[in-house]
Write a protein that binds this DNA or RNA. Structure first.
Lengths: 148, 148
DNA sequence: GGCATAAGGTGGGTTTACGTGGTTTTTTGT
DNA sequence: ACAAAAAACCACGTAAACCCACCTTATGCC
């Protein structure tokens, strides 16, 4: 179970250090095997799944009918892009250059623990998201009972 | 099972190097025999099937009634265009010039592992696809249950 | 409060395998 | 038989994997 926000920096080779707070979870959930893909819903964001979680996601996505464009897009962004990575001796993973480029993640980034996965955002994209507040029109039925 | 995205470059002769990460799968699934055709759904994209997979696809497509124009189109783009290729000693395949031209794949390209096949995209077409995020309106019934 | 120690994060060097360009030889088609 | 194209072969540059060392920050102890 991932949770928490950490500012991280990519070095010139495109490596990010997995924050110590997540290391244990990564080791336990996935035997240190992570899968990097695009977040198909947002710009400037990559997803990092523990391998086990990934396999479920992949199978679900592959099972969608290939007749619909939106399904093929999803398959392309998730399955097509999926790269296996493993932390080096210092707990860093190398993010594939093509994904860094396409997602626009350069040096400053933010790593978010999001339950079953980690999200890596470019600093800009993350800041923009955080600054967007939720307006009243966006509130859904399901949100009315929230306890805060 | 193919998966993962790799930036590749075609040389002047139209050769692409199959990324090392896919070599094993290609050798195992097809004895190094691949079939190149058009992706009938997308511009700027070629499909590369292991020969075994291809035979199934071909038979399915050929079995469609020839009375419908859309069926004949599919047969034309898939079966009609299919070219057998085999990697050279350095793991490269030569893409037929006509297919490179028709798909608009020149120098920079991206190779995607898409389960039972590989997809070769022109860099531009790929980037355009990745930058399109999936919007709320596109979400289908089938997608509501996805675990991410 | 300041210093010592440890842990996490960062930078960089080295080796090796992979990708890429090019050359030569063989085949194919005219 | 000749030209053009594809296949096979060779060689180099680069980037990834691995490893080592330093710097910064947090923590504990005197």
């Amino acid at each position: 179970m991932f949770q928490g926000e950490t500012a991280v920096t990519l070095d010139d080779k495109g490596r990010v250090s997995i924050p110590a707070s997540h290391r244990e979870a990564v080791a336990k959930l996935s035997g240190n095997r992570l899968v990097v893909t695009y977040n198909p819903f947002e710009h400037g964001c990559l997803w990092l799944f523990p391998e086990k979680e990934w396999e479920q996601v992949r199978d679900e996505v592959n099972a969608l009918s290939k007749a619909k464009t939106v399904h093929r897009n999803l398959q392309m962004k998730l399955v097509g892009a999926a790269a296996h990575v493993e932390p080096d001796g210092n707990g860093r993973v190398l993010l594939p250059a093509s994904q860094r480029g396409a997602a626009g993640i350069e040096k400053k980034a933010v790593l978010l623990g999001m339950g079953n996965k980690l999200e890596l955002w470019s600093e800009q994209a993350h800041l923009a998201k955080i600054r967007e507040t939720i307006s009243e029109e966006q509130i859904t039925e399901d949100m009315l009972d929230l306890k805060f």
